[in-house]
């Protein structure tokens, strides 16, 4: 008797999991959709927020819920499980997912320049070439994107691990403040302005080492959806993309700046206004680096290079032909 009860409970447990997951999939079919961001609400997601707040999704008949991301969130997993219809993921995430058979599709590339760069004090260091890092203490987040990028840069410049001292980076900047580390990885449009201000208050000036300037284009955040959405609800995908990109275009318009900052403050209450303004300016330069850049455009060459880098560093076992899952937004 007891055995039967146990068997039935195991079955019911599995059934309830499957039911709850498939239940979410059903909601995907309606025109309500969850859009899972990669990170918390801040200036780097302003276009996503702006599109929502200014009703661009609604205007196209979509009921989109924009949800914050975070370190434990993975938009691609959520797409597959049906918890979200759209999401933001970094290129390496997309390529890793493809390598494991995930049916993910890229529908827009938000960052044209990767915001992940290295900050350093400019008075005693000038990194104009990768070789300038020789003998320096370089901060790297083991397992993070910056490790992949730095290893690629070093390989290109013919440097090995013996040429630099690697410092394992954590969430707090104390080692950089204490000058124990020479170059420290930061997100240009979120952490960098804060660091810059703090060091500026101490009379120190900083500069940035941008991997793209040294030939390493590693694609950052992009907008993704599932293959199933592409096939079954192409209109929803199209409308979503155009609403989102319109949001980004408007959010980065110079004349909208005050309104944009006002909108942003509703979501990001912790960042001081002067820092937030700087973050917005930098975000603009990374997403729309040139006047004629169309927001969302896919830099196919950068995607292919990203895949190549990952392949070279054994992060994926074989090529995934990333270009096949990229749908150009226009």
């Amino acid at each position: 008797m007891n055995r039967h009860i146990k068997k039935i409970s195991v079955f019911l447990f599995l059934f309830s999991i499957c039911f709850s997951l498939s239940g979410i999939r059903v909601s995907e079919a309606s025109e309500t959709a969850v859009y899972r961001l990669k990170w918390l609400f801040n200036a780097s997601v302003i276009g996503d927020i702006y599109a929502d707040v200014h009703g661009h999704f609604k205007a196209r008949g979509l009921d989109v819920t924009v949800k914050e991301g975070g370190p434990e969130r993975d938009a691609i997993r959520e797409l597959e499980l049906g918890y979200a219809a759209f999401g933001v993921a970094s290129a390496d995430q997309v390529i890793r997912a493809l390598a494991k058979g995930s049916p993910v599709v890229v529908i827009a590339q938000l960052f044209q320049i990767n915001p992940l760069q290295w900050i350093y004090r400019s008075e005693n260091l000038d990194v104009t070439r990768v070789e300038d890092l020789k003998g320096k203490v370089v901060g790297i987040t083991f397992g993070g994107n910056d490790e992949t990028i730095m290893r690629t840069l070093m390989a290109k410049a013919g440097l090995t691990e013996k040429d630099i001292s690697v410092f394992s980076v954590r969430y707090d900047y104390t080692p950089f403040y204490q000058k124990r580390v020479d170059v420290w990885p930061v997100y240009r449009n979120s952490q960098a302005p804060i660091l810059e201000k703090k060091l500026g208050d101490l009379g120190e000036s900083v500069a940035y080492f941008n991997p793209a300037a040294h030939g390493v284009k590693f694609v950052a955040n992009s907008v993704v959806t599932s293959k199933r959405m592409m096939e079954e609800q192409a209109d929803v995908v199209k409308n979503f993309t155009s609403a989102l990109l319109q949001g980004w275009e408007e959010a980065l318009e110079l004349e909208n700046e005050e309104d944009v900052l006002k909108t942003l403050r509703q979501f990001d209450k912790d960042t001081p206004p002067d820092i937030m303004r700087k973050q917005l300016v930098i975000t603009r330069s990374l997403i729309k680096p040139f006047k004629d850049t169309r927001i969302g455009m896919i830099d196919l060459e950068a995607w292919q290079q990203t895949e190549k880098i990952m392949l070279e560093q054994n992060q994926i076992p074989s090529p995934v032909a990333v270009e096949k899952v990229i749908r150009k937004p226009f």
Partner: peptide, 9 residues
């Protein structure tokens, strides 16, 4: 296997 999820998930 029931939901046909990829190895990534």
């Amino acid at each position: 296997y029931l939901l046909d999820l990829s190895d990534y998930v």
